[in-house]
Structures are given as C-alpha cells and as structure tokens.
C-alpha cells in the first residue's frame, strides 16, 4: 500500500529526568512527500540517530506528532499498538552497512520481510526477485551475502527496505562505506525507487559527496531541525 509520506510536528525527545535530563530532540518538524528523497544532515551529537530511532518506532518520543500516510502514529504517545508490525510493514530501513543476514541467500534476505508479514514463501520470493530486476542484482539472487561486492550488498539492502512497499524509508548513512561513484549510484537508485514506489525517503548523512544531490535538506543542530533547499544536482 503506497502511503502519503511522513509528517513530523514538534517532535521532542528527552533522555533521563530532573537535573540530568538531556533534550536530544527539542523541536523537530519535517515533511517528506511520497516519491521524495530528502537529506537529514547535522554534526555528531546533533540528534540524527535519536530522530531516526523515533521515526523508526524503536524509541518513544517525549512529545510531538507523527503522521505516516493518512494515519497518526504518534501524538504525545503511540497511537499504534503493534510497533513491531509498524516497523515491518510500513517503515523500510537501510543501514550504514548492509547488515544482510549471513545465513540467508540474497533472495531470502529480502523475501524474509513479506514472509514475516505472513505472505507465502513463493509470493515473497517473487516480490524480491522483481525488485532485484529493478536494482540490477537479479543475477545474484541465489548468492550468499558474503559472495557479493559492497555495492551489490547495498543494493540488496535497499531491496529489503523496499520489499514491503513501505510509505517511508529511513536510510542511515547508506553511502558511508562507498566511494564517490558507488555512493552516487546508491542515491540514484534511491531516487528511482522513491519515484517508482511513491516512497518518502529520509537519508541521514554527512557524506559531502551526496549532499548536493538533495533538493531539500533538513539540518539538525542541538535537536532542532531547519529546512533548507538543496542543490538538487543532476548526478546522472
């Protein structure tokens, strides 16, 4: 099901309480439309990871509002009972390293998500293979992760993030371990996929190589986000 992007309003996250309390997120406002790829950049300790964990429903914000597609998922408290299912079905994750499951082949690494959602194995695998075609790793479908190159592994990881057709994908430094050429290739793929599947993609990065490629960028500093227009450079 294709959603309508993600909207975040006044999101806050405080760790601890009393004198030792730390406000990791003070005021986060974001809006990412379906088919859009935005950059989230900021220095270390600015709150990027905390924001990503809040958006990924891994930790609970302290206050604010999050809307995923048409549904409010957080409004000063979770509005969704099953966060695990929310992460599985409606949020895609792409990590800094591919983190593929080493004991599953490429197809099952990707097909695992729809399988976890209860889809039959054959259908799940078919879904995975369709994505492989789009990501040009179809020929590696039966390979084990250890047999893939770094770029191939990252494309498989992107396929895993996309396979359940989530309305939003959170990409955490997806180009960090890649050289310029491959990093730009990954961004190109993400843009392609965002358009093709009407998915909102938030790319957390401080990779100077790819920052100019975003049309919109959210800067986060001391837990506060600020929207900026990006260069939106043609990276073809």
């Amino acid at each position: 099901m294709i959603g309508k992007g993600i909207v975040i309003e006044g999101l806050k996250k405080r760790y601890g309480s009393g004198e030792t309390a730390v406000d990791a997120l003070k005021e986060v406002n974001m809006q990412v439309a379906p088919g859009e790829v935005v950059g989230l950049i900021g220095p270390s300790g600015s709150g990027k990871s905390t924001l990503l964990k809040c958006l990924g429903a891994v930790i609970e914000p302290t206050a604010g509002r999050m809307k995923l597609g048409d549904e409010i998922i957080y409004d000063n408290g979770w509005k969704v009972k099953d966060l695990r299912a929310l992460r599985r079905d409606r949020i895609g994750f792409i990590f800094q390293a591919p983190y593929l499951i080493p004991f599953l082949d490429v197809t099952d690494n990707v097909a695992l998500l729809p399988m976890l959602a209860g889809k039959p194995n054959a259908e799940s695998r078919k879904q995975a293979v369709e994505l492989f075609k789009a990501l040009d790793v179809e020929h590696r479908a039966k390979a084990m992760p250890s047999q893939l190159s770094g770029g191939e592994q990252q494309r498989v990881a992107i396929a895993r993030g996309l396979v359940n057709r989530p309305p939003v994908i959170l990409a955490d430094e997806p180009t960090a371990p890649l050289d310029s050429e491959r990093a730009l290739a990954v961004i190109r793929i993400l843009n392609d996929m965002a358009h093709r599947f009407e998915t909102a993609i938030i790319v957390v990065t401080h990779d100077e190589k790819i920052i100019p490629t975003f049309k919109r960028i959210y800067h986060i500093r001391d837990g506060v986000t600020q929207e900026e227009s990006g260069e939106g450079k043609d990276f073809q």
Binding site: R87, D89, F93, Y99, I101, P102, L113
Partner: peptide, 12 residues
Amino acid sequence: REIAVLKLIGTK
C-alpha cells in the same frame, strides 16, 4: 547484530 536487524525489521 543480525538479531538486532531482525528485531528492527519486525521479527517477533
């Protein structure tokens, strides 16, 4: 790490 990934992607 794999278990963390499995949990993150919604494995029960």
